[in-house]
Structure formats: C-alpha cells, structure tokens
Lab assay of single mutants.
Amino acid sequence: MSIQHFRVALIPFFAAFCLPVFAHPETLVKVKDAEDQLGARVGYIELDLNSGKILESFRPEERFPMMSTFKVLLCGAVLSRVDAGQEQLGRRIHYSQNDLVEYSPVTEKHLTDGMTVRELCSAAITMSDNTAANLLLTTIGGPKELTAFLHNMGDHVTRLDRWEPELNEAIPNDERDTTMPAAMATTLRKLLTGELLTLASRQQLIDWMEADKVAGPLLRSALPAGWFIADKSGAGERGSRGIIAALGPDGKPSRIVVIYTTGSQATMDERNRQIAEIGASLIKHW
C-alpha cells in the first residue's frame, strides 16, 4: 500500500482519535458579512469528516447552483462504474471539434489522439474542462443518470439537468442544476469515506481534487503551510461562485467545507476574496 493510499485508508482512524471539535460562531459572522459585502445569498456548511456531524452552517438547506462543483460527483459516478466493471479508466475516447464547448483548455489539445477516461476526469476536476465533463456525462448516460446515481446514494436534493455550459445559467428560483450545502457536503463525505467506492477509487477521487489547479484564489489562499486540501470550485452566471473541499491540518483532511453564493453584482475577484476570507476565519478558529 502506498503512503497516499495509507493516508486515505486511515482518515477515519486518525479522526477518531482527534480531540473533540467545537464550532466557532466567528466564522458564521464572516459568512454573514460576506453576504453584506456581496449583496447576495451565501450558503455555508462545515462537517466533521469522521462523524458527519454538522459543526457550523448557514442557509444549509437553500438551493444554490452547483456550477462546476458537480464534476466531482460526476467522476465519482464514473469511478463507481469502474468498480462495477462497467468502465475502464484506460479506455480512450475520441471526439471532434464539434464536441468542444466553451472553456476546454485540455480537451482542445487532444482532438487528434483523444483522451482516456482517467485523463478526462483529471481534466474535468483539476482544470474544470467543460468538454471533458460533457464527454464523461455521455459515458454514464447524461445528466439524468448522474441525478439517479445521487438518488441511489441517498441524495434526493442534488440534481443535474443540463450539460456544460448551460448548467451554469443560475436563474433565480430555478431548481435545475442545483444542490443544497448540506446535501453536497453529505454526498461528498460519502464519496470520500464511505463504502460506495473502493479504496482505490476513493484515493483516485481525492487525488484529482488535491491536484486542483484553478481554485488557488479561494480556500487555498488562506491555508497555512502543512495543511491538506482537496477541492473543486465552480463559477456561473449572475454572480455565482462555489467551492467544495476536504481539508485539515497535519497533512490530512478532517472536515468537509461547502460554500456557495449566487445573485451578486460583485466582480469575480471580490467573490473570490470573500470566500478566501471565510476560509481564513475557519482556519483561525479551527
């Protein structure tokens, strides 16, 4: 067993022997301040990774656009098919120029040779490549099948209805392509620590998230040296922004954090800054 596999296998073990965790309302004060600064709703939840206990939450059962955070769930569904012998990570998928959609920095470079399922998941999570996500959605049967996968996990809230990039439209009061912070946090925890996926697939999923290259201005910008984070960000229309993450000190994750916002007129930089400040408060009061 590799060191990384050992780390993920012992996530519940280490967490069980940690000192009790206590909620700190100071972080919620910052979440509410972010709402004021952005002029928009902000949803927040913080779960203990081992027990699933909610440590703090704000608007945990209000719907927010998922945006690209759905790509972690998508690759979880792909990995479940791999575990069941219905898919192979090494299978190569070929596609054409007509398949390319807006923001496809990886797939646009491989029109000639195609990409493997493993490479597509890596591109979808680490670079948020939209064509990679659409190609992977095709392998599982489309958005409705991802929703069905989530329902089978016990998540009857999260739903995907459309493809990239239309799913980022974020129309107010439109339930399409949305989740709730509580539902997303619980589902992410199941994917990373539950028995739904094999140990190898859980490790692969967290490795992809740990290698995320496009979430630097968010929670990662607030992390002290030595902290662990595996995350996936999302951005959408109407001032929408979000991030889902597993993080913790001492090089291992111990909490799940989900943050979503929508309806702001603020710039992307300002949305990023507010999420980073929430992260800084979380870490300060850990």
Results as ranks from 00 to 15, higher is better:
168 N>C: 06
233 S>A: 08
109 K>A: 14
89 L>G: 06
106 V>C: 09
134 N>K: 04
127 M>H: 08
175 E>T: 14
277 E>H: 08
280 A>P: 01
193 T>K: 15
143 P>L: 04
57 S>Q: 12
71 K>H: 00
112 T>Q: 15
61 E>H: 15
129 D>C: 01
31 V>F: 03
286 W>R: 02
145 E>H: 14
111 L>M: 13
226 G>D: 11
204 Q>V: 11
255 R>G: 02
110 H>K: 12
37 Q>H: 13
283 I>P: 02
172 P>F: 09
78 V>I: 09
30 K>A: 12
121 C>T: 03
184 M>F: 09
65 P>F: 03
78 V>M: 09
41 R>F: 08
267 T>K: 12
122 S>C: 08
88 Q>E: 13
22 F>H: 15
167 L>Q: 04
55 L>H: 08
92 R>C: 07
174 D>H: 04
20 P>T: 07
167 L>W: 01
120 L>I: 06
262 T>V: 08
192 L>A: 06
274 Q>E: 13
160 L>G: 04
206 I>E: 09
143 P>R: 04
218 L>W: 02
42 V>D: 00
138 T>Q: 15
60 P>F: 10
274 Q>L: 15
126 T>L: 08
90 G>V: 12
169 E>W: 14
278 I>Y: 01
65 P>G: 03
269 D>R: 11
107 T>H: 01
187 T>K: 01
186 T>M: 15
22 F>E: 15
152 N>R: 15
4 Q>F: 10
229 I>S: 03
123 A>H: 03
17 F>C: 09
55 L>V: 11
132 A>P: 00
230 A>G: 12
60 P>G: 15
176 R>V: 06
196 L>W: 14
106 V>G: 06
194 G>V: 07
147 T>P: 03
207 D>N: 11
23 A>E: 05
6 F>L: 10
171 I>M: 15
94 H>A: 11
164 E>A: 00
183 A>D: 07
84 A>R: 12
192 L>H: 04
228 F>S: 07
283 I>D: 01
46 E>T: 13
12 P>N: 12
97 Q>G: 13
10 L>V: 12
41 R>C: 06
253 P>L: 10
268 M>R: 07
212 D>E: 04
89 L>D: 05
241 R>L: 03
251 G>E: 11
249 P>H: 07
126 T>Y: 04
87 E>V: 09
56 E>I: 05
189 R>Q: 15
269 D>H: 13
1 M>R: 01
49 L>Q: 05
109 K>M: 15
274 Q>K: 12
133 A>G: 12
211 A>H: 14
164 E>G: 00
96 S>A: 12
117 V>W: 01
96 S>C: 10
171 I>V: 15
39 G>S: 13
269 D>N: 12
4 Q>P: 08
263 G>V: 04
